Amino acid sequence: MSKSESRSHVLITGATAGIGYELAKLFAMDGHNLILIARDKEKLKEVKKHLEIYNINVDILSVDLSVDSSCEQVFAFVDKKNLTVDILINNAGVGSFGDFSSIPMKKELALIDINIRALTELTKHFLYKMVENENGTIMNVASTAAFCAGPRMATYYASKAYVLNLTEALNEEVKNKGVKVSCLCPGAVNTGFQNKAGIKKNENAKKNIMSAKKVAQIAYRDLEKGKTIIIPGFKNKILVIVNKFLPRVISRKIIFKINNG
């Protein structure tokens, strides 16, 4: 039996940097074969080279998940190689920053396509097969933003609320069918996401940013424990708890002030 057949396969989107890359390393070190999805083909090749030192198979696919046909490309790639995805990590995500009325529609729709549409398509496709096999794990990456409304990042916060609610509902549906669906909800992470989204953080806010490596370690540990909602960092857990008791009108005013810098 080849190593490709004898070990589980983990499919990770957004796998060339940040949390996705750190999770890929952790799975690789534990002997899991990898299917890595990202836009940058050259970075994928570099990551593949780095991770193959762990004596695993690393398959890579360059695809833009904001394109309608992107998920079909992923499915065709997996089927052509006759691979079974035992673990799916929906990590790919983008943000947008500014007043909703001023952000270009194209940018908002690309966010929705990546954060919501692609995540939903990938989850539905592989969850069906996992339920059929009575085995599998899915982790969808949301954010602490999922727990509140986010003025000046309205679409991003709303997209992460969708991810959290979808994940909780699916886990309830399949928890007795041999499948686990978890949601990772980190706070600010040092991944370059902030700069890409156009977010400027003050010095105090920067102090609370966690490293992608630390977030991945916590996520990996709690995923093995079977936790449904994973919130890395004590401060982030406290913020989520406090937010539950705040009237929404106050919560959104606080977020508005924070997002205004």
Rank of each mutant, 00 (worst) to 15 (best):
Q73M: 15
V63H: 06
L83N: 00
Y21D: 03
I35F: 13
L88E: 05
I87F: 03
N55R: 08
L36K: 03
N82Y: 04
D86K: 10
D64W: 00
D40I: 09
L26D: 04
T84P: 01
T84I: 13
A28R: 01
N90H: 04
L23N: 02
S96R: 08
D64C: 07
S69E: 13
L83T: 01
Y54L: 13
I87H: 05
L51G: 06
D64T: 04
M29E: 12
K41G: 11
G98P: 08
D86A: 15
E72W: 06
H32V: 01
E22D: 12
L34G: 01
N57T: 08
D86Q: 12
L44Q: 00
E22M: 13
F27S: 06
V74Y: 00
R39H: 10
Y54H: 15
L65R: 02
A28M: 07
Y21R: 13
E46I: 12
K41N: 14
N82M: 05
I53W: 00
S70V: 08
Q73S: 15
L61T: 03
S66V: 01
S96W: 05
D40E: 14
D86T: 09
L83G: 01
A24I: 07
G98I: 03
S102R: 08
F100N: 09
R39N: 14
N82I: 03
K45T: 09
F100H: 11
K25Y: 05
C71W: 01
E22K: 13
D30F: 05
S62F: 05
Q73F: 10
A28S: 10
F77H: 10
L26F: 07
F97W: 13
D86E: 15
I37D: 03
K49W: 12
G93M: 03
D79Y: 02
Y21N: 10
L65A: 00
D68R: 13
S101T: 11
D30M: 06
T84G: 01
D68I: 09
V78A: 03
S70T: 09
F100L: 15
H32W: 11
I87D: 06
K80H: 10
S69V: 11
D30I: 09
G98W: 02
N33W: 12
E42Y: 08
I60K: 00
N33L: 12
I56T: 06
H32Y: 15
E42R: 10
N82P: 00
I53E: 15
V67F: 13
Y21F: 15
E46K: 09
G20Q: 10
D99Y: 13
V47Y: 02
F75P: 08
V85F: 09
S66M: 00
H32D: 07
G20C: 12
E52Y: 08
G31L: 08
E52K: 10
G93Y: 00
V63R: 03
L23V: 04
S101I: 11
